[in-house]
């Protein structure tokens, strides 16, 4: 039974990270109907920024907690800046182009950012310091849940709650929902659609960076390529839950995390990534609207 709980919590941890990244996909898709292929790279950039901040902090000799907070905050700021810049350069000029154009542009952006980090930093895996302290009260449970896992789960839960409240109650959140439903109408009602789209990229990127720093600390190493697989998996999570739906992204992330965790734990660890891809393919084929998504009838 311990093994089960071990897998359960590692799946939950993994799923939380997927959910954090998936939110970026789902929000951007909800508003501009684009699979933001470069989103995984934003997550990777967040992780690298976090690493750099943590490195400086450790040289300066700061405490673990302040290192963690600084790393997360700065990584989120930078990731947002990257997200907004990517949108300005690669997507905004293509807003009225045929549907596949921005997607191709996004793929190009993703390749560009990967190689940018590869050239500016390194092509190798680099060690990432563990930023999460051991909590004394965790002692009795540490057989199946470590402090990192707990922090990831809690932080994700808090981030989701804040985001949900933000979207529901703030003015910009309402503008976002309006734009997602009908961009033209929102524009006519005086919503600054450009701002809304930028805001979406900022929030999505910040959450991805949060996930990036946490996963770096959890896994202990990162490289320029982590964004690719994580990006596809998070996209899977978003589709699984129903793209465009925020609770859907969380649900999809958790389901994917558990699927992977249990499948690798009970079936075979060689095919860890294959499970995610198979899930993606099956979902898209049989229920492209996802679990919480709505199917819309085509208009003629």
């Amino acid at each position: 039974m311990d093994y089960f709980w071990d897998l359960f919590f590692s799946g939950l941890t993994r799923g939380s990270i997927y959910a954090l990244i998936a939110l970026g996909y789902t929000m951007v898709y909800g508003i501009i109907e684009l699979i933001n292929f470069a989103h995984g790279e934003i997550y990777m950039l967040g992780a690298f920024t976090g690493l750099i901040v943590a490195g400086i902090c450790s040289v300066l000799g700061l405490s673990l907690i302040s290192t963690l907070v600084l790393a997360i905050v700065i990584a989120m700021i930078y990731a947002s800046a990257y997200g907004v810049t990517v949108e300005r350069i690669a997507y905004r000029p293509l807003r009225n182009a045929p549907r596949l154009s921005p997607l191709i542009s996004a793929i190009g952006m993703s390749i560009f950012l990967q190689n940018y980090v590869l050239l500016a930093q390194t092509s190798k895996f680099v060690p990432f310091p563990n930023l999460i302290p051991d909590f004394a009260f965790m002692q009795p449970f540490e057989d199946f849940i470590g402090p990192s896992e707990l922090v990831i789960i809690v932080v994700t839960a808090v981030a989701m709650t804040v985001l949900t409240l933000f979207i529901k109650y703030t003015k910009i959140g309402k503008a976002m929902r309006a734009t997602a439903q009908n961009r033209k109408m929102a524009l006519l009602c005086g919503v600054n659609v450009d701002h809304v789209i930028s805001m979406t990229f900022i929030i999505g990127s910040a959450l991805a960076a949060l996930g990036g720093v946490l996963i770096g600390s959890y896994m202990g190493q990162i490289n320029f390529f982590i964004g690719f697989i994580a990006g596809i998996k998070a996209f899977t999570a978003a589709v699984l839950g129903g793209i465009g739906s925020i609770p859907g992204a969380v649900l999809g992330g958790l389901i994917l995390g558990w699927t992977e965790s249990f499948a690798t734990g009970y079936v075979s660890s060689d095919y860890q990534d294959v499970f995610a891809f198979c899930l993606l393919v099956l979902i898209l084929i049989f229920r492209p609207a996802g679990i919480l998504g709505r199917t819309n009838t085509k208009k003629v």
Binding site: L34, I35, R99, L103, I232, F235, V274, L280, V281, P288
Partner: peptide
């Protein structure tokens, strides 16, 4: 499938 979903599914198949 719609265009962008097709792209992702084929990507998934390629990786599988």
């Amino acid at each position: 499938l719609r265009g962008d979903y097709l792209a992702i599914v084929t990507l998934g198949f390629g990786e599988i």
